[in-house]
């Protein structure tokens, strides 16, 4: 037995590529066709873009957008440079003041400059994940409870059905006002704007998860339920040993749907409420109306799409990891 076969037997799941017809047809299917699709899209895009005249100049083609990616990157570098200088100046100023006024407790204040494109992306990601996790923490227990009790399901279902189709833009004003009324700490832990976006995201992405979890739990194989009854499992053990493992595929389908909703909602919420993040970036550029604005917005659109795609793939990978149902895609 040579080494190759040893490895091959060890990773029995792993198939080594065979240089035969299937390999080439797979290569075409997985690589060549998507590449061709993208190229055709770029071609169509740049051809159409040249023919659209807006009051801000021509609609940006792929080249203009690429240029703005570079410009945004340069801006980011420059901003980091300024940030370093800011902290240096601050330390010097603090030292001078301590020399004059020994009782002074020097304090380092955060950089006051504008957040860059990269910062905005990170802000958006943090916000969407926080909102989503909060929704998970509420939706899954709620979904399981509803799934277990038909009576509760009947009671709560109408409410869910009414709230599910509500647009984030309708929630936002309410959320904003309630947050400003209730969250009045003089030294807040997190910014109000962050809380506004987060709660709006949670409110909108709660529902698909609740529904899927409930459906998953309600649809557990009767045999499994009977096993649990025979063993006289206490309620919590029943949920832990029978309900959760059995409904994991449905729960994750709900979570994937919800994360997609959350990402879309967040961009809209940031745009409307001027909360920091990618949505605000898009809105600010629209307001600026400079000749680069459209290309920068297009750059943001591509980044938003790419992140949305990666989030979805990430959830799928997680789902495959924890679930017994490996067929999801």
């Amino acid at each position: 037995m040579n080494t190759t076969t040893v490895i091959a037997t060890k990773f029995s799941g792993l198939k080594l590529p065979q240089l035969d017809g299937t390999f080439f047809s797979n290569a075409i299917r997985l690589v060549a066709l998507p590449v061709a699709g993208i190229l055709a899209f770029l071609l169509l895009w740049s051809a159409t873009a040249q023919n659209i005249d807006t009051s801000l100049g021509k609609f940006p083609g792929p080249a203009a957008v690429m240029e703005q990616f570079n410009a945004l990157h340069d801006e980011h570098q420059r901003s980091r440079e300024k940030e370093r200088a800011f902290y240096e100046r601050q330390e010097k100023r603090n030292a001078e003041r301590v020399a004059k006024d020994p009782n002074y407790q020097p304090k380092i204040r955060a950089y006051t400059g504008k957040e860059t494109f990269l910062d905005q992306i990170i802000t958006s990601l943090v916000t969407v994940m926080s909102g989503f996790l909060l929704a998970v923490a509420i939706a899954i227990p709620l979904g399981i409870t509803i799934g277990l009790s038909q009576a509760l399901n009947n009671a709560i279902n109408p409410i869910i059905q009414i709230f599910k189709p509500v647009s984030p833009l309708a929630w936002l004003p309410l959320v904003t006002m309630v947050v400003s009324a209730l969250y009045t700490s003089p030294d807040p832990l997190v910014a109000k704007s962050f809380l506004n976006s987060l709660i709006t995201v949670t409110l909108c992405c709660l529902w698909p998860m609740v529904i899927n979890t409930a459906v998953g739990v309600a649809g557990i194989d009767k045999d499994l339920v009977n096993v649990s009854k025979v063993l006289r499992l206490p309620a919590l053990r029943h949920v832990q040993k029978i309900v959760l493992p059995a409904s994991v595929p449905m729960i994750f389908t709900g979570m994937r749907l919800s994360l997609g909703v959350a990402w879309m909602v967040l961009i809209a919420a940031e745009m409307l409420a001027q909360n920091p993040g990618l949505g605000k970036f898009v809105w600010d550029e629209f307001q600026n109306g400079s000749s680069d604005s459209l290309a920068r917005i297009m750059a943001a659109v591509l980044v938003i799409g790419l992140i949305g795609f990666l989030l979805d793939r990430g959830m799928l990978a997680l789902q495959k990891l924890v679930s017994w149902d490996k067929t999801a895609n």
Partner: peptide, 13 residues
């Protein structure tokens, strides 16, 4: 002022 965080319109404008 033409920086995008301030007014953000083109320099010439």
């Amino acid at each position: 002022l033409s920086q995008s965080n301030y007014v953000g319109a083109d320099y010439d404008v």
